[in-house]
């Protein structure tokens, strides 16, 4: 059996001041009046969901907002990531790595929370694919009913 070391990684250590700040005052939170693409992702593990709306002009992200419900980690990740994206070429989204999101959060993410941290990245990536006409809306809202 793999020797498992009881590291204190899932504990209160992850709730740093800036995480709490982004969670309680998320940046770019809300809805856009006009957008070019909208996408909703769902984390079946915890029931979290997030919707991202992007307004694009000349391939630049003119405005981007998210709304939905999530834990501190998923909300903070979305808040931080979106702040960074505004004003950048939409192309850039394709090159964002998971590690980059972890770096933004700058806390060690335990395996059980990885999905929370990456929900937002998943959502923007899919949004870009939809924007480029690559795929149709992927999340099947009827999966559970």
């Amino acid at each position: 059996m793999t020797e498992i070391i009881d590291r204190n990684y899932a504990g209160e250590g992850i709730y740093r001041e800036n995480i709490i700040d982004h969670y309680t005052h998320p940046r770019n939170f809300g809805k856009l009046e006009k957008f070019d693409v909208q996408h909703r992702e769902f984390n079946p593990l915890c029931g979290d969901e997030t919707t991202i709306e992007i307004k694009v002009e000349n391939n630049i992200i003119k405005d981007i907002k998210f709304h939905g419900k999530g834990c501190a980690i998923s909300m903070a990740a979305a808040s931080m990531l979106l702040s960074e994206l505004k004003g950048k070429p939409i192309e850039n989204i394709k090159n964002i790595s998971k590690e980059h999101v972890f770096d933004l959060l700058s806390i060690s993410i335990s395996p059980v929370r990885v999905k929370c941290a990456l929900l937002c990245l998943e959502t923007v990536r899919t949004a870009v694919k939809i924007y480029e006409g690559g795929i149709v809306e992927k999340v099947d809202k009827k999966v559970y009913m």
């Binding site: 899932a10 504990g11 209160e12 992850i14 419900k69 999530g70 834990c71 501190a72 980690i73």
Partner: peptide, 12 residues
Amino acid sequence: LHPHDVASILDS
């Protein structure tokens, strides 16, 4: 508060 956050703190 999100249940995940509550559970994380309790886990600590």
